[in-house]
């Protein structure tokens, strides 16, 4: 390692995984620097969960190699497991054990010292100290996810793999959750978190976008937006939101989507795009060019990669 090369917490190359004849993860390369939060995005079924599982040794890649925390993810899977916290997409704590019992179980499995103290501290941090005797299965969605996070971090891992940790969680609980993730990253943890929420993607240091098993965009949000070469026009005025149908058929328009009463029309060919909206450059509509949002970019990426399917 040269002194200037970054300190990768995750550094995997060319991961492949097939189920039957379905190539679910295709040549995926992911690098995340230590202490950073990387958002893992992609449509349903694009292979996010499968990739995360390969990183923590739950699935064996068909090919590809790499390291997590300096350990080979295939040959030293046990060492990786010991230092990684993994939060599954589906709630997978024991619903018939209490909150405290779930934490105690995890503490024992990882052979932690000062168990009582750690569990108490985790409960304190969660704000669940008074409800420690409640069955985990009876918690609401948001609390379940926070408990799962507390469990996944109990053994003080260096790497956190979170699989859609905030799906079905209300905005306030989501914010609390992300505050916790940032607090953990500030302590030096590396986080790879999959999500479908754009606001969450924007809270990450960097993002990786996967579609149909291929990694098609990487970098900070600004880099991904810039790399997309996307141009977006914002149209306002009464009934502007209803233009989507007509506009999306026009040549040069890659996506046209209503944003409340306004509309976002995007494409990568400026001339064609301007030609497409020309018929509507009249009263009562007002048009302005805006920087594309991550969502515009992702919808465009999704559309493109679909066309790429052999």
């Amino acid at each position: 390692m040269t002194p200037s090369s970054p300190n990768w917490a995750i550094d995997v190359h060319g991961l492949n995984k097939s189920f039957g004849d379905k190539h679910v993860v295709n040549d995926v390369t992911i690098q995340v620097e230590a202490g950073r939060i990387c958002g893992f995005l992609g449509p349903n079924g694009s292979g996010k969960t499968t990739t995360l599982r390969m990183l923590c040794g739950l699935l064996t890649p068909d090919s590809g190699s790499g390291q997590a925390l300096g350990f080979d993810i295939i040959r030293e899977a046990e060492a990786v497991k010991l230092r990684t916290g993994y939060m599954t997409q589906k709630f997978s704590l024991y619903e018939d054990l209490t909150i405290a019992e779930n934490l105690q179980f995890t503490a024992r499995v990882y052979g932690l010292d000062r168990r009582r103290e750690r569990v108490d501290k985790a409960l304190e941090r969660l704000g669940l100290a008074s409800r420690r005797g409640q069955l985990a299965g009876t918690l609401s969605g948001g609390w379940k996810q926070r408990l799962a996070l507390a469990t996944a971090t109990l053994h003080e891992p260096k790497l956190l793999l979170l699989d859609e940790p905030t799906a079905g969680v209300d905005p306030k609980a989501r914010r609390t959750f992300w505050d916790e993730i940032h607090a953990l990253a500030a302590e030096g943890l590396t986080v790879l978190v999959s999500t479908h929420y754009m606001d969450e993607a924007e809270r990450c240091h960097e993002i990786a976008y996967i579609s149909y098993g291929r990694l098609i965009a990487r970098g900070t949000a600004a880099q991904v937006i810039a790399a997309s070469g996307l141009i977006t026009f914002h149209g306002e005025g009464p009934g502007a939101d209803k233009l989507g149908h007509a506009l999306s058929k026009a040549p040069g328009v890659e996506t046209a989507a209503a944003f409340g009463a306004a509309i976002h029309v995007s494409g990568s060919d400026r001339a064609a795009l301007e030609a497409a909206i020309l018929p509507y450059r009249r009263e009562p509509y007002r048009w302005s060019e805006v920087p594309p949002t991550l969502e515009d970019v992702f919808i465009q990426l999704m559309g493109r990669s679909q066309d790429n399917i052999p």
């Binding site: 709630f91 997978s92 024991y94 990882y110």
Partner: peptide, 13 residues
């Protein structure tokens, strides 16, 4: 069946 196996397998057990 309950999905808890995934967490169990992710531990060093």
């Amino acid at each position: 069946e309950r999905g808890t196996m995934e967490t169990l397998l992710a531990t060093p057990l």
